[in-house]
Nucleic acid binder design. Structure first.
Lengths: 202, 202, 202, 202
DNA sequence: GATGAATGAGGATTCATTCAT
DNA sequence: TATGAATGAATCCTCATTCAT
């Protein structure tokens, strides 16, 4: 069944290309990935790439944005609609969310941002505004809620929500650099949560 | 106008080149740095570079190794020769050590490893063996010592020394990506230490 | 927003495209003009272009020919039907004709022929046969008529009718290269005519 | 005698490349000439081209300038140091100078300026300032001298020195477009000079 | 040992042309 | 017919590496 060499699929192309590019960037990084390779992965000609993305850089940005979108918003929605106590929410949905991050596309995006970020300040800003700021904000707000409810006490952690993310980040970086060396990231994150809760509980 | 640094001595060359390369890599990353630029920074001709380093990759490895050497060993020596109690040591020398990491060349090396590591498994191994394993080992050993001395209790942390590093790593990555966004890394690290100590003290 | 020009009629298409192409070539030259741009100017899809013109080159030839047609024949007709004396005709209709050439599409065609001519010998031949030869022939014949009538004397100019065109050509080239530098082309042409008439009048 | 594949000839390279480029541009025009072809003609690698000329455009400019330099200055020098009467100078050195222009590199430069000039306004300015303005100026000054000396009378030609150039320009363009069609350019130019002198002689 | 001129493989991008719809 | 998505050859330019001097 030889595929028709010529298919019109305008609707799907951007995503197909974006996905192929993500896979390629994940494997080789941005610079080492040739545009032609992305095209091949997407089952598309080199020229078509430039119909949808003016430059390789623009493709790069599209890739980052495509990964980012809606990931955080889900968490925030969950936070806002939850009826769980603060502790239960942290030990439940939040913990689950955190545990899956190191194995998710987010890890790849982190890698891309570390490698290419310095040359794409606008992308860094985009990522900060849409992911980091939102995430940090959500956690902060949630902790403050716990304080209001009397579940938590005032503590330095309210101003350092990054402490929630620290083990996640370490797990991500560990996975990026030391792929084969084992690390029990789940336990790492759990233990951090234990410590944090012990620290802030009233 | 590359200054003719005092008497050009052959034996200093490798280091001079290595330092220049490190500075260049720090600014632009490995791929974006041209060999010629390193040569200029080192006040040396392009051709001479290849007398000391067969390829750009080899130079890269030399750079990573040069940064790594002796940094960790100092910490280990300090640990082994200290007469402080475990807690005092942690709150003193170890905390200081951790605090200066985000601003140190280590951060640059992390960036390089994340960007280029996948293509240099041997370098990753080298780094793991000489830095990470040693560091992790030292902390583990130290915590175990605390337990033996009765200062600390048995806990999950003995097997997760990465919890000490987590806030450091987050600080490093934050600095790499979000250069301008403020983050009180010192406080972050201190608070983590507080929590860890609270968690493991007998 | 390409206006849907009244009722799109098939038979007008070739001319519409040809006109659009001429305008584009005039602005950017042949090579720098993309087929797609011509299509847009003509309010037509890229694909349709290829229904009327097999290649960009064929379009180019059609453009040159479309500009050429009938321009010279008008002059010749006028010459043949005039009842003016030779001098009066030269100072009247011929001078007017010459004066308007530098600002006319002919100037653009000259540019195109200079740029692309070497790669289109057949087009050059076409232009020579239908424009230059005819024009030169007409002037020659007209001058000879003047001699026969006793208005003019025999002179080198009978064999060098290009002397009539010289100031026109200089004006055209001047306009093509030095768009902004002023040149009184009318006076240039008039003075040349004065000199020529002084030279050949019996 | 296989040429050494690797020769150091820094001194001569720019000119060699410039000459090769001129030849290539003369044959094919700027756009149709590939950088690699110029390299081959110059017996040089593609990469070396970019050591001496940052871009193809810069090479183009260098080519134009290399042709222009000193050509006009020679004429001006001759004018200033001549002891001939105005008429004798015009019929002698000036006429010779004009006659050789259509077959000289200047013709090629004209072609390049017509084709590529619109995209290189600075180059057009350069050419105008260093060639056209100087040439026009020299002729004007020379004619005025003739008037002062009583050889010539006041006339429109003092303000239209382009009349001297008109037959030269026509000859150049004729040669560029109608390579094979014969035209007695020498006689054309001579006759124009005859007419001009007849017109301005006191 | 030093130098930096010279090489050439590699990769991004453009655009005339084709063809499924 | 008419469209414009899709193709791929063509080309500029970069930069790690080599080597004559």
């Amino acid at each position: 069944m030889p595929k028709p060499r010529y298919q019109r699929r305008k609707q799907d192309r951007p995503q197909e290309i974006t996905q192929a590019a993500f896979a390629a960037f994940a494997e080789k990084g941005y610079t080492a990935t040739r545009v032609e390779e992305v095209a091949q992965r997407a089952g598309v000609s080199k020229g078509l790439m430039y119909l949808y993305f003016k430059t390789k850089e623009e493709l790069f940005k599209a890739v980052v944005k495509s990964v980012v979108i809606r990931r955080i918003d889900q968490l925030i929605d969950t936070i806002e609609s939850t009826e769980l106590s603060s502790e239960d929410f942290i030990r439940g949905p939040l913990l689950s969310f955190m545990k899956q991050l190191p194995g998710s596309p987010v890890a790849i995006v982190i890698r891309l941002l570390i490698s290419e970020g310095p040359r794409h300040p606008d992308l860094v800003d985009y990522y900060y505004d849409n992911v980091v700021a939102k995430g940090i904000g959500a956690i902060t707000k949630f902790v403050e809620q716990g304080v209001e409810r009397g579940e938590f006490r005032q503590s330095a952690i309210t101003e350092l929500p990054q402490l929630f993310l620290a083990p996640v980040m370490l797990s991500i970086i560990w996975g990026l650099i030391f792929k084969d060396r084992p690390l029990d990231t789940d336990k790492l994150i759990e233990t951090q949560i234990d410590m944090l809760l012990a620290h802030i509980k009233a």
